[in-house]
Amino acid sequence: MIERILEPILRKKCEESKIVVLKGARRTGRLTLVSRIINLEDPTIGIIDCSNKKERKAMNEPEALRAFSRDKKVVIIRDAQLLENLQEFIDFAIELDSLENLLLICSFEPELHEDLWEALREQGLELNLFPLSYPESAKFHGLVQEDKMLEQRLIYGYYPEVVTNEDQAEKLVSEIIESSIFTQLGASERINKKENLIKLLRHLAFNIGKVISFNDLGKKCGLDNETVERYVKLFAKANLLVLISSYNNGHRYELKKSHVVYFLDNGIRNALIRAFQPLEFRNDAEELWKNFVISERFKANEYAGRKPEVFFWLTHTKQEVDYLEITNGEAFGAKMSWEDSKKIKIPASFSELYPQIKVTGINKKTFWTFLRK
């Protein structure tokens, strides 16, 4: 079994706190991770699966949920964001001395009181699980072998079952689209235009790393610009997309109030546009590489507990820095290239405007250092 970076963190949080929230898209291995620290066969461990409509309907009765929990040491609620009376049950669980842990497994933020969210986040009790990361897979397969598999990862991504069943990768990643995108949001989220939504996601997939216009996307997808923006931000919150804003200080030619989008998993992006050809037959290798590196950096920051501000920089004359990261006033940047023989040019205009920000070229030989920075 591939060891997850989050395992010791989740174990420690469950030892320290009664309530822990584990967020992650479906099929990222959430329950598998939980099973590494909790014996799910123990009769004192109760699991409620809210993706099952009958089970969810039964447990939406407050007394049924309470009765279920009274003889349990641990209660695990899968897809907890779908449970209507979740906050009421949490209030009950806090007072139930016999209950040692309440673990909420979610693919989207459940509706909880703001003061509870504030307390959970302040104590680091909201954890995010992603598809496998490069370091996790490299530890399992060995660094040399993982480097050989880079092209495969750029095409099929890092969902656990895809990595462990490489001969079925295309079939599996296509199946994951439905389960990870359309069935994982909160019960109150209005996702009622599935056909329009899939159009939107495909347009985003074709335009990873390019400046997007919510208004233009809406016209192409039959949605108004406010709905487009809401959907994009929803899927960023659900850890399927990374939404990055433009960096500017009011200098001439700098883009302002602009955004680019990347996917948290290359395989999901490629499945949306049905593009699984080898890199030698594609014209989007550079975009795939940027998506891969930025998504891996995103995972690394989350697992390390870092919360940097993240930007891209672009001018109207097409001078560009792919990625900027700022933490406590300290900043660094990166420009990326899949071809390690290609010299990466840092825009002179950026260096003149921001001499304090060092920009590094990231290719296949240097990205491991970038992930560990």
Results as ranks from 00 to 15, higher is better:
I90Y: 13
L6R: 03
L112W: 12
R66V: 13
V34S: 07
D115F: 10
R66M: 13
N207R: 15
E189V: 08
S213P: 00
E189T: 14
L223S: 00
F276W: 13
K54M: 14
G333F: 07
T227D: 01
K345F: 02
C14H: 14
K237R: 07
E84N: 06
S179G: 11
K256G: 15
F350R: 07
N363S: 10
L240I: 10
M149D: 07
P135A: 06
L96H: 05
W117A: 09
F89N: 14
A80F: 02
L112R: 00
A58M: 12
I208P: 02
G209P: 11
C106I: 15
K345R: 11
R4Q: 01
S107I: 05
K335V: 06
Q145D: 05
I38R: 06
R252T: 13
R78C: 08
P308W: 09
T32S: 11
G124M: 04
L83P: 08
R11D: 01
N270F: 04
V74I: 14
F92V: 06
H316K: 05
L234H: 15
K199C: 01
F281N: 01
Q123I: 07
I268N: 03
G361L: 00
R78T: 04
F312L: 02
K358H: 02
S258H: 04
T317F: 03
M149W: 00
N196L: 04
L172P: 03
Q168S: 11
Q152P: 01
H259A: 12
L83M: 15
L103P: 12
R121T: 12
R36D: 07
T183C: 08
P160E: 00
F182M: 04
S98H: 13
F311S: 00
I212R: 09
Q81V: 02
F206M: 07
E55D: 12
T327L: 13
A119M: 14
L172R: 00
V261I: 06
P131Y: 13
N52F: 03
I77T: 12
S180A: 13
N249P: 02
R190P: 05
K18Y: 11
E3I: 06
L116W: 01
P110V: 03
I362L: 11
E61M: 13
F281A: 02
R252H: 06
R30W: 04
R56D: 12
C50T: 02
E170M: 09
D115Y: 06
L353H: 10
L10R: 08
R56Y: 08
M1I: 09
Y247D: 14
V21P: 13
K373Y: 11
Q319N: 05
W368T: 03
V359A: 12
E136S: 03
E175R: 00
A58I: 10
L132Y: 07
E286M: 06
L31N: 01
G124T: 06
N192Q: 02
V359R: 04
I94K: 11
T227G: 08
